[in-house]
Design a protein around this nucleic acid. Sequence first.
DNA 1: ACAAGAAGTGAACCACGGTTCAGACCTTGC
DNA 2: GCAAGGTCTGAACCGTGGTTCACTTCTTGT
Lengths: 216, 216
Amino acid sequence: MAYRETPAVRMRLDAARERLVTEATAVVAEVGWAGASVGAVAAAAGMSAGSVYQHFASKTALAVEVFRRAAGREVEVLGAVLRDGAGDAVARLACGVEVFARRAFERRGLAYALLAAPADEAVCAERLEFRRRYRALFAEVVREGTAAGLLPPQDPEVTAAALTGAVGEVLVDPLAVPSGDAAAEALLAELTAMALRCAGAGTVKGTARPGGNDDR
Amino acid sequence: MAYRETPAVRMRLDAARERLVTEATAVVAEVGWAGASVGAVAAAAGMSAGSVYQHFASKTALAVEVFRRAAGREVEVLGAVLRDGAGDAVARLACGVEVFARRAFERRGLAYALLAAPADEAVCAERLEFRRRYRALFAEVVREGTAAGLLPPQDPEVTAAALTGAVGEVLVDPLAVPSGDAAAEALLAELTAMALRCAGAGTVKGTARPGGNDDR
DNA sequence: ACAAGAAGTGAACCACGGTTCAGACCTTGC
DNA sequence: GCAAGGTCTGAACCGTGGTTCACTTCTTGT
């Protein structure tokens, strides 16, 4: 034999694959899953349509990878706040919802693609899977909150699903139509307040401070 | 001329169109939007693929009609409970959520298709529109609740969106995997309790009865 | 009964976009 | 420089499923 893969080649290959995923993510954020054809994505990454298949077995596989990368980042960030953040369970819940929403606003196109944009079967399945992960994170913090007496008795799984759906639904419309920063901030405040109500923060009889209420 | 549309013909035509919509709905409930090809739907309605185009300009138009009919019924039922039902705003909200969820469980396949199943652009757009209607109904009852002092101050639109998303998300998984009646009833109870918390029922300081709490 | 014209059929048509592949071009070890 | 074996290209291929259309079958007024 007279040819063997050299580190330099491996690196070029990996870089190309990386660029493909990155550019595909950008295209999806821009035009949605439906508009992200193999040709368009390849062009964005500066390669031919055929070369895409050097890195991924199918367009679906690429789409799934794009989704996993982007959604995985969000799961990680949310987990970091909810699980390893500072403060009690209620404080971390509020912080988690706010961080999640804030990040969504910073990358509207991508957030919309991840949350709501029409997608094919495989991506929808992935969406379901990641929603399950969001739910698991929320459920954990709710469970901790009830155990600590900060939240009233409830099924943490139901509340977690509700939080996931509620946050997503509240964000979908604002993400679709651009709005001002002030409006976004107001929305964030309302959203976190809603999330706390949803979990029942501030309604536990023994712990509730007599005159204190959660509105500012 | 020697042929003119007679009432009998009109009636047959209308009946055929009706049967088409009905059967298409059944097919969609069974196999989802993706599996509901023109051929399959036509066969279910006892007509040829070509005849579908006698009644609808395109497959998309038929899909939209199917969605509107089914979703429209739900909007009407929810509106009847939330707007014209008995009891105060909080009672009607609880009742509305429960009725909505109960109806979803009675027609799982259809409910799943309306709420979450992968669908093409046009149907997704329709979904967005109907979610807006659900939101409007919830927002109205929340607004009434805050005005009556039953609910704390809040942005009714945000809470309404949250309720819509929360109910949908909580239902998606249970709708996909069949479960027992007992589990379904328990879920309903948790779901309505969560909805009331989400709107802040029972947290208003002046009105709250000292010892009373909303857990049973 | 018959002509006019609509409803109904289903096989052929076609657009679309993912996928393939024969050839061009590179990289490597000798 | 050269052979071996890789990467890269983009035009051609192809499966899918919505849509069309020539034709058949019915319905209606005379």
